[in-house]
Amino acid sequence: MSGGNKTANTEPWGGFDDNPVQGSGSAVIDMENMDDTSGSSFEDMGEMHQRMTEEEEEVAAEAEAPEEETGDDGEFLGMKGIKGQLGRQVADEVWQAGKREASKAFNLYANIDILRPYFDVEPVQVRSRLIESMIPVRTITFPQKVAGELYGPMMLVFTLVAILLHGMKTSQTIIREGTLMGTAIGTCFGYWLGVSSFVYFLAYLVNSQITLLQILSLLGYGLFGHCVVLFITYNIHFHFLFYGLWLLVGGLSTLRMVAVLLSRTVGQTPRLVICGSLAALHMLFLLYLHFTYHKMVEGILDTLEGVNALPIQRVARDVPELASAAVNATLQTLGVMLQIRQSPA
């Protein structure tokens, strides 16, 4: 490149003709380099990016160089200079767009290759991990092993999506401004990724010996209990059955995760913080999923949205006594508070 600049300086005429060609020449060279590195590894990206920026700087330097020389030949070569600049600009834009596309495709391809090790499992392993997700291990003196694998969690999340769809349909849930499918996918993936990142953040705070991948795998396999419980209770509507399964199956899968986290955290308070928040989130999520998309929702929706009823008319609701008692208590409290506030006035 510097050689090109030298020739441009010695021969003012050649500068206009040579530079665009050199620009495209450097583009070709760079594309070839990209192809070479694409096979090797992802660590080359930084180096490649650095090289790209260097190339860009050189192109910019070349673009500036001829403009200094237009003083002598500006009148003579006016048209040619404009043409050359235009051509250079177009070539530059094309080159930029091409580079963007190429690096995007390159990123996608590299990402698939990067993910491949996490899907490297055998059916037997998946089966044993599913069973182990229900068996809490009591050894907390040394760190328990956690497999960093994403096939099982992904499939469990998709299964949970399908079960949620089923629950939404049978409970005749109506979702405005969205589809059932989108809501189900958003809920499941949101829980999995969101809670994993949250727990990872907590683990970072309390200095636990666990990676994000291990948390993703652990929490994903923990969803197996949810799948089982929800699949049964969306079809068999007994509240006692649900509470039993919630405590038994959900509790077992939560205990398993808590045991793993206990074995990888040191100190009483850190253990309490991280295990308590994970257990609460996990158990409450199951409760939420069950009661949000349960048949009980019908009555409330009818009341709230007034499909068939007049606004003030009273509608019999199919709400269990616990919930209605809670509502009554809240109303009473509100009433008492209002009375208290009114009494001084």
Partner: peptide, 17 residues
């Protein structure tokens, strides 16, 4: 050969839905 079950499961889920 050894991973057919893992590939078939999502297919099964897809058609099941």
């Amino acid at each position: 050969q050894n991973r057919k079950a893992l590939v078939v499961y999502p297919v099964f889920l897809f058609y099941f839905v």
